[in-house]
């Protein structure tokens, strides 16, 4: 439930920021959105088993699902590249206003 609450809070903040006017706020919204979605992916793997899936120290019953972790790891890097691309867009042209007038 704690993870679900975190996801809810992140998504709410993300949606609010993404619907704002300045590009920087939209970028920050997307950052939060990717946090929320990444945690959702983790949540899909189950939250009760929380041991790191490192087998050097032998296996165990409580090992976390490694598949969502791999997905999330690449997702973070992709989101990073998208974030810096969007930040670049914010820094081009006259400013980061995405709308013409109020």
């Amino acid at each position: 439930m704690t993870l679900a609450i975190t996801i809810g809070v992140l998504i709410a903040g993300a949606v609010y920021l993404v619907l704002q006017r300045g590009m920087v706020r939209i970028v920050l919204g997307f950052v939060l959105l990717s946090h929320g979605v990444n945690l959702l992916l983790m949540s899909a793997g189950g939250v009760s088993r929380r041991e790191a899936p490192l087998l050097a120290g032998g296996g165990g019953e409580a090992l976390a699902d490694p598949l969502p972790q791999a997905f999330v790891l690449t997702a973070i890097v992709i989101a990073f590249s998208i974030t810096i691309y969007m930040l670049t867009l914010a820094a081009t042209g006259k400013g980061d206003d995405t709308e013409d007038a109020s």
Partner: peptide
């Protein structure tokens, strides 16, 4: 909109995920 979306996401995460045994893929990989 934000609060509604957040509520939907939170409830969705709570109700729709993490309610099953480890997946076959996960077990196989481990």
């Amino acid at each position: 909109i934000a609060v509604a979306a957040g509520t939907a996401a939170g409830l969705g995460a709570y109700l729709l995920t993490g309610r099953r045994e480890p997946s076959a893929v996960s077990t196989h990989l481990l």
